[in-house]
Amino acid sequence: MQTQTTPPRVLGLYDEPFWRMMAESGRMHLQCCTECSTWRYPPGPACPACLSPRADWTPVSGGGELLSWVTFHKQYLPAYPAPYNVIAVRLDEGPTIISNLVTPPQGPIIGQRVALTVVRMEDGVALPRFALAD
């Protein structure tokens, strides 16, 4: 998995703390609803469970379950020469995140436990990726 450059990130009004806190602390923080404790990803203006605007940026455990994975055989983005993998992980806190597995996936691994690993890209971005937990 490449570690050089990160394609442009979507940085809407609510996204900045996610990336800043990742770089500063080496941990993933997500918005957690102040009213009902529902976790939120991607960052946004309202809780999907109760519509409250209030949230606290809170660290997640980093554990999750692998939902699915693919291997790109065609290059679409300058930063990502093929082949490379993309995975979907359901975090233990609830939200699903799209990411990469740090080792090439193979075999029937859907449902396996994964653990967050924050990769320092050479362009300075702290990028959350995952490794198989066992």
Binding site: P7, R9, V10, P42, V70, Y76, N100, L127
Partner: peptide
């Protein structure tokens, strides 16, 4: 577009997942 930092792009890839 949101998952571009991880190389996730293209409609086909959504259906592949």
């Amino acid at each position: 577009i949101y998952h571009a930092p991880w190389g996730m792009t293209s409609q086909g890839a959504l259906y592949a997942l």
